[in-house]
Simulated assay, not measured.
Amino acid sequence: MEAMEISRSGLDVEWRRLEVIAANIANMNTTRTADGGPYVTRRLVSGPVDGFPEALRQTLSAYDGIPRKGVMVYDIAATNAASRQVYDPGHPHADEAGFVTLPAISQAEEMALMIKTQRSYEANLVALTAATQMYSAALQLGRQA
């Protein structure tokens, strides 16, 4: 069941990443949030359940029989991307000079990241399907014996 659990954890992480990307795209023109400033771009931080040092040790050494646990979300962190200034003197949030502060979100960058995340999600789905088929074939062999 280890392969299925690892793929399932990957599906969960990539789904959450898609949600964060969608929120970034949806808020690219948000000038004010609840705390008063423009929306801040967010990124999902993920990695192995065991932590990076343990995952690296397991990768560099021969398989030691320790079951792998998959991946998890560590955090949804705000980026330190600068905001952008747009001249729109008629906007209700414009400053004295007529500029509106908007988040520095690139729709092209977000869409590229969304496609990459979608491919990772699909790869985990294929791995989950393959593991399911292998376990099913093993059960069929067991019934024949």
Results as ranks from 00 to 15, higher is better:
112 A>Q: 07
59 T>W: 09
16 R>Y: 03
37 G>H: 11
100 V>Y: 05
90 G>F: 09
126 V>A: 13
56 L>D: 03
30 T>A: 08
69 K>E: 11
118 Q>I: 02
7 S>V: 06
99 F>C: 09
130 A>L: 12
112 A>R: 13
62 A>Y: 04
104 A>S: 15
108 A>H: 09
120 S>A: 15
113 L>K: 15
133 Q>T: 15
5 E>Y: 12
89 P>L: 09
136 S>H: 12
27 N>C: 02
120 S>P: 03
94 A>T: 05
125 L>H: 05
126 V>H: 13
68 R>C: 02
94 A>Q: 04
77 A>K: 13
117 T>H: 10
108 A>L: 14
78 A>G: 13
99 F>K: 08
38 P>A: 15
35 D>L: 08
85 Q>L: 15
44 L>A: 01
22 A>K: 05
52 F>C: 00
105 I>S: 03
1 M>K: 04
36 G>W: 04
6 I>C: 02
75 D>W: 05
82 A>D: 13
129 T>P: 01
17 R>V: 02
50 D>G: 07
82 A>C: 01
97 A>C: 06
111 M>K: 07
131 A>F: 07
53 P>C: 03
130 A>Q: 13
65 G>K: 05
117 T>I: 06
14 E>I: 00
134 M>Y: 09
2 E>F: 03
90 G>P: 00
13 V>R: 04
